[in-house]
Every structure is written in C-alpha cells, then in structure tokens.
Design a protein around this nucleic acid. Sequence first.
DNA 1: GACTTTAGTTGGACAAAGTCCAGTATAGCT
DNA 2: AGCTATACTGGACTTTGTCCAACTAAAGTC
Lengths: 138, 138
Amino acid sequence: MSDLLERLRGRGWRMTAQRRVVAEVLAGDHVHLTADEVHARAVAKLPEISRATVYNTLGELVTLGEVLEVSTDKRAKRYDPNAHRPHHHLVCAQCGAIRDVHPTGNPMADLPDSERFGFTVSDVEVTYRGTCPNCAKA
Amino acid sequence: MSDLLERLRGRGWRMTAQRRVVAEVLAGDHVHLTADEVHARAVAKLPEISRATVYNTLGELVTLGEVLEVSTDKRAKRYDPNAHRPHHHLVCAQCGAIRDVHPTGNPMADLPDSERFGFTVSDVEVTYRGTCPNCAKA
DNA sequence: GACTTTAGTTGGACAAAGTCCAGTATAGCT
DNA sequence: AGCTATACTGGACTTTGTCCAACTAAAGTC
Ligand SMILES: [Mn+2]
Ligand SMILES: [Mn+2]
Ligand SMILES: [Zn+2]
Ligand SMILES: [Zn+2]
C-alpha cells in the first residue's frame, strides 16, 4: 500500500502520521472495514488519532478514487481499498463476512431498453448473499 | 393492498388503525420509502401515529416477508412492498429515484464455484445506477 | 535548523436513523 | 360491558456520520 502513499504524495498530499496509519490499516485483500473499525485499528497504532480525521481521510480517498464505499449490510458504510480491479461482493448473511468476487457475464447487457425507463445506466453493483463455511459449521 | 391486510389478519394480526394506515401508505408500484417517509405520510392520515409504531410495523412486515428492505443509497433503509415478484433496482445517482427492473439472465449462474469460497449462495441483489430522464434534462 | 504558511488534526457539538422500554390504550374475545 | 393480551406512545438512548473553531505540524524558504 506504499504505492498508494506515493500516488497521494504526487497529488500534493501532505504525508502525516495519521494518513500513513489509515493507509496501513487499509492494506490487504478482501478488506471492507467500517469507518469505526478503521478508527479502532488506527488508534492501536497511533493512540490520539481522532474519529474526524479518519472520516476525513476516508472521504478524501474515496474522492480520489483510491477507495470505494460499499454498503453490503444496511448499517455502516464499508471502505474498500480494492478500487483498481472491478469486482462484486459475496456476503455472509449470518456473520457479515465479505469476499471480493469476479462473476462472468455482463449484467449491464441483461437490462433491456424497455426496462431502463429513459435512464442513462452507467454502473451495476451485484451482491451475492449466503452462508460462509464458518457459519455453516455452527 | 387489502389483500395484504387479509393475509395479516389470517396470521393473527390485530387490525389497528395504525397498521391499516401503514399498509395504505405502502400501496402502489415502484414504492421505496424510508421509515421516516412512511411516518410522514402516515401522520397525514392519522396524526398521532408514532415513529416507534411505524418502525415496529415495518419490521413485522419484513419478518413476515410482506415487505423487503432495500438499501440502494448509503443512507436510510427503504421499504419495498413489491415482495412477491422478484426484481432488482435502477437508481438515479442524482435524485435517488428508484424503479423496479426485471433483467434477463441469471446472475447466480455467473458466479463460478472457484469464486464462491465455500459459501452456500442463496440470493443475488443487482443495483443499476445512472441518471434519470428528469435529471438528464437539467 | 528556525521561520512561515497553510493544510491537516482535534474534540466536541450536532444531526439523522434506528432501538428500547415502562406506562397507557384498545382489539377482539366472552 | 368487562377482561386481557397485544399494540401504541413518547422519550431516552445508541450508532453512524457531519461540521466547526481552535490548534498543530509538514514542507518549502532562507
Ligand atoms: Mn471489495
Ligand atoms: Mn422494488
Ligand atoms: Zn458467516
Ligand atoms: Zn434523477
């Protein structure tokens, strides 16, 4: 995720301890944390980082296109650092676990003109729901 | 929507003025109101209905499978009385207008086993986003 | 390395969406 | 009409998120 920090520096971002920590927290695959989860993990590395800064930083990352907002459950927004490879999500209805998935096919093509109501359609979001292996055991 | 009231009576529901009003508010096609919108419209018909009752009633309708919760934007949940015909949604990114749509194809079939991570997948939700004719004009 | 500028951070107040509960009212039964 | 379980109410509380004025510090200049 230091690629990210490089790109951001290139865009005129001041490199602060807070931003570095948020970027660290967002590293990895299948990462879909809420703002408060990001804050909790950031605090573990930098105790006095504020909620407001986490919200600000996440918002900026979203604006810059480096992080996506996803709302797989109906509660808090989740922040997804996997912004550069298009993908969809598979969510466990019990525990909320989220995996990135790459379905075949093109759902855009499956919406006939007669079902577009004059809209200009620009994007599709697909969410698969089910039960994860862990929850299936219990 | 009086079919609904019949079914509910059959399930042992007491028929109260509040529940009748909530059911009335939910009548129609392409209806996707937030709880507070339902409350506002219910108040117009029955001034002293409380927010708590609206939330309770909507929750019960969801449990009974008579209404679906959808979260097309990242804000309040929306309540969808069109629970008996499977469908997906087309949302205007500007004004939030929502239409029910029925795409062709079967997105379930588009998720290969190798992309299921051991999950038992039971449901897919597809949200199309774009610009509605109204917002396109402006 | 100190100075300056200005972007970034902070904590707390505020707002919106939703839950919970103790007390009150009433639908439906007899 | 009277009884009782169910439903309703209003308010307190929680969670998620936004906003702001005062403070802090990154990065450029000397
Ligand atoms: Mn993702
Ligand atoms: Mn719908
Ligand atoms: Zn699970
Ligand atoms: Zn629109």
